[in-house]
Design a binder for these strands. Structure first.
Lengths: 336, 336
DNA sequence: TACGTTTTCGTAATCGTTTTCGTTATCTGC
DNA sequence: GCAGATAACGAAAACGATTACGAAAACGTA
């Protein structure tokens, strides 16, 4: 690997001048700067990331955090799409990405320490338990962070528009004639709260009353718990005509349960999911669901984080709402 | 962040001694070593990754390479599972992972240069065009590498057991009574060659003759091309009774085409896939396919790469075969 | 011509760690 | 008690880059 000393020798100048030329310092003449830059390119010079990180903190490296506790990590489609677009946008802007985790090997590090250890310029918190003190420590530290699907005070966040998404789904089934709508929700995160609130509000707006026992708890990405909730709904004296599932994957548990009862979708029961993963669109019948703009969310996360890193003085935190789109499958029956 | 100087001051020794104690050098007494290690832990010391990387090359950071050319990157389930297990195993052993790509931002770097730039201790080449000179340069460099589903000379590789997998599938459909079996394959990579060879060999072994026009080319993870191949197979005077698809996703294209012709699975046509992704198991009917041991592959990749990094002197390249398992769905009809 | 200003460049310190080599001090055997 | 070996530690030089500061040269002006 060729270093700054080499190109200094080749140009007959000092290392300082080379560094300054390459970083666009004002106190180097236009001609020498050009000459240096050209030979640097010719000789295939690239700055040593470690040396630079050591000297100036900046590493051109951003951390990505997927909670290692919750199983639903990288390999869930929603998150892998986010990861992919975070990575693509970061690379486009010259940044590498490194995973941030806790307890690297034998050492006992929390997220913040890990980020410092690797001198990350910033961290994208993609999936985490936002009550975890270690997460809070990171998000309230001096390291720029952006969170997905959650907002910390005075920090940038990228939010999937759950309110609008849920509203779109409710309106859709309403137009199909449904008035008895059940809602199975995941863990009570802020996302869940928003979806539930939007569900209730839209129902109220449309004049639909939702009995308390139409609202059922379950877990995200857990077909079993959704299956249970489905069974409970089927046991009600007045069954719903349509069930909202926490996500596409959870619907599968519901489907199995419905099949057990000899109920077919959508003739015996209408259903909608959430997420719009590939799977939902190859199922027969195709699932009616709301696709979150994962690609845009990842891209925006990288973009805004890097903006903050590069303009820390003038930066103001913002909350970026990313819209999704309704995928009209055929799991919602028309009722007269 | 507390540094070596701090703990040197706290212990009343020099920085050199601290470093040596922490790294288990022989020339420091047992008591001082213990004392130093304890205060280091108490003070929450972690070595600065950049400084160490600068001084000794070692960065405790391994690169992971997903070709940026082929779209089927991280977000494909097979690869995201591999990524997840590579990451988990690496972290367990105290290594971080960073993505290796080409053309970081404005700089013009190839894979090898990128790996050096970040002073990676090794690279897992998870998905790539193995004919690409840039890939070859990396794989023949002094940097330890391990490849997945491809073998370079004198390098370690993790191979999904395609031979056995394909054999298992052929035997399975054979036992179900099928004798006219068509094979749609993906791009002619070494993986494809192995699968095709194993297909042919097993057929020959079982006394099945495979007409040349039963072998059809298509692309991996591309439902459209598989749909086309399916159409061609259906146009043959003597149709096959069973079709092998390049992978689970590709089968979807075939399914659409079969539906167009009013053919149902498995009554009108038996099919098998490959990969065993989640999707294949929630389809109705459940797809008969072969699940590759993605989790084990990623784990083995990390494990063997780190072994090589830490014992470069005694290390010998090896080819590690990872078995999968046959998933018996219900897309292969019993024939009498 | 002399002096102040600006432009352009180099010297040297620095980031945190590792490592070579020397310096003590302690020990061993006779 | 002494030469030589050994054990334990420290001083200082790296690794490759950045940057505050000073120096020299070039320029302008009176």
């Amino acid at each position: 690997m060729i270093k700054i000393t080499d190109i200094a020798a080749a140009c007959g100048v000092s290392r300082a001048t080379v560094s300054k030329a390459l970083n666009g310092a004002p106190d180097v003449s236009a001609e020498t700067a050009k000459r240096i830059r050209e030979t640097a390119r010719k000789m295939g010079y690239h700055p040593n990331a470690a040396a630079r990180a050591l000297k100036v903190g900046r590493s051109y490296n951003i951390g990505v955090l997927f909670s290692d506790r919750t199983g639903g990590g990288i390999s869930h489609e929603y998150f892998s799409q986010i990861l992919e677009s975070v990575k693509a946008e970061a690379e486009r802007r010259g940044y590498d990405i490194t995973f941030i985790s806790q307890n690297l090997g034998a050492m006992h590090m929390d997220y913040y320490e890990h980020a410092k250890y690797r001198s990350c310029d910033g961290v994208v918190i993609a999936s985490a338990d936002f009550q975890d003190p270690a997460i809070i420590r990171l998000a309230t530290s001096e390291i720029p962070t952006v969170t997905l699907d959650y907002s910390f005070d005075s920090r940038t966040s990228i939010l999937s528009d759950n309110v609008r998404g849920m509203e779109a789904l409710v309106r859709f089934v309403y137009e199909k004639g449904h008035r008895r709508i059940a809602f199975i929700h995941g863990e009570m995160t802020t996302v869940t709260q928003k979806r539930l609130a939007s569900f209730k509000k839209t129902c109220a707006l449309l004049g639909i009353s939702v009995p308390a026992d139409y609202i059922r708890p379950a877990y995200y990405h857990d077909p079993r718990s959704s299956g249970l909730a489905t069974r409970e709904l089927l046991a009600l004296s007045e069954r719903p005509t349509c069930i909202f599932y926490p996500d596409d994957l959870s619907f599968l548990g519901g489907m199995t349960e419905l099949e057990k009862h000899g109920i077919s979708v959508p003739d015996g029961m209408s259903v909608v999911g959430y997420d719009g993963i590939l799977l939902s669109q190859v199922l027969r019948p195709r699932l009616t669901t709301y696709r979150q703009g994962a690609e845009a969310m990842g891209r925006e996360a990288s973009r805004s984080l890097i903006e903050e890193i590069e303009h820390r003085d003038t930066w103001l935190p913002q909350q970026i709402l990313v819209e999704g789109e309704l995928l009209e499958g055929s799991t919602v029956r028309e009722i007269d």
